[in-house]
């Protein structure tokens, strides 16, 4: 579906390459995440993949097309959900969507049904200028789905959403995956990446530092530790040991036998922990 080989991109005004030798592939039906802090090159990479930036070096093939030779018809098959929503403020949601839909030759999905799914059906006739950021985000998501594209680019799709609406959107993303859609998710939200992505790529300073499944990345590096608390002299004390050594731990067995164990937690690495360990940078 996507094949990126040794890609570099330099903005004319920049001193150095913003994208520096990136290579990866994405299979059909996969949810692939780009995880990295602001300014890492995620948006630039997405602009290359969507054919907006075409002055790259290397090879970028998307939907079997070298992206710098793409035609306008290429956009019939991709849907892009922007981080910052863009609509005609004086048009209603329905007018906006119908207007944009008329530019595609594909059969358009039932717009009202999609609006209902994201909870905007009661506001379909409301001017978008009066929408909140969260409502615009949901509307943007509907727009990127309505022409039934094969490939979706989602840039921070849950940004500005309350937990309930974020849940709805994430379920819809997973639903699209089950329909065979390929999804590129750009985010600095590790929870979204962990929950949604089959694989993630850590991007820092225009380079991919690691690519793997979220599970494999979390398992890499330090072993999982266990923190347990126990009562001692009418006070709570804590102890930490490796999960793999818990069974053999004399201290833990003593506490367990004495019946003084009060709490026990396994402490797995989060994607953010792995990210920091690998890159020395925070995701925010």
């Amino acid at each position: 579906m996507i094949s990126v080989q040794d890609v570099y991109l330099k903005y004319p005004a920049a001193k150095d390459d913003t994208i520096q030798g990136i290579s990866f592939t994405v299979e059909q039906g996969e949810i692939f995440g780009f995880l990295g802090p602001s300014g890492a090159g995620k948006s630039t990479l997405q602009k290359i993949l969507t054919g907006v930036l075409r002055q790259y070096r290397g090879s970028v093939r998307v939907l079997d097309v070298e992206i710098n030779t793409r035609k306008s018809s290429f956009y019939e098959n991709i849907g892009v959900d922007f981080e910052f929503p863009n609509f005609y403020g004086k048009f209603t949601a329905l007018e906006n969507l119908r207007g944009f839909a008329s530019l595609y030759s594909a059969k358009i999905a039932d717009i009202m049904l999609l609006l209902e799914k994201v909870g905007l059906h009661h506001d379909a006739d409301k001017k978008v200028g009066k929408y909140s950021k969260g409502m615009k985000m949901r509307l943007g998501f509907v727009r990127c789905l309505m022409h039934n594209p094969k490939l979706l680019f989602l840039d921070e799709p849950t940004s500005g959403l309350d937990p309930a609406n974020a849940r709805v959107l994430k379920d819809m993303i997973l639903e699209e995956k089950t329909r065979g859609k390929t999804i590129i998710l750009t985010t600095h939200n590790m929870h979204d990446a962990e929950e949604l992505c089959d694989r993630v790529a850590f991007i820092v300073d225009g380079k991919i530092q690691a690519i793997d499944t979220p599970h494999a990345l979390r398992q890499s590096g330090d072993d999982t530790t266990v923190e347990y608390s126990f009562a001692k002299n009418r006070q709570e004390s804590k102890n930490i040991c490796l999960l793999s050594e818990l069974g053999a731990s004399e201290d833990f067995r003593t506490v367990l036998d004495a019946g003084t164990l009060t709490r026990i937690h396994s402490k797995e690495q989060t994607l953010e922990d792995v990210f920091i360990a690998l890159t020395g940078r925070s995701l925010q």
Binding site: T50, G51, V52, S72, S73, Y75, E76, I78, V80, F82, F84, P85, N86, F87, Y88, G89, F100, L103, Y104, S105
Partner: peptide, 14 residues
């Protein structure tokens, strides 16, 4: 101002 050029850039409109 409304950010619409970003959309036109990825739409099938030539």
């Amino acid at each position: 101002q409304e950010g619409l050029h970003r959309f036109w850039g990825i739409s099938p409109l030539k």
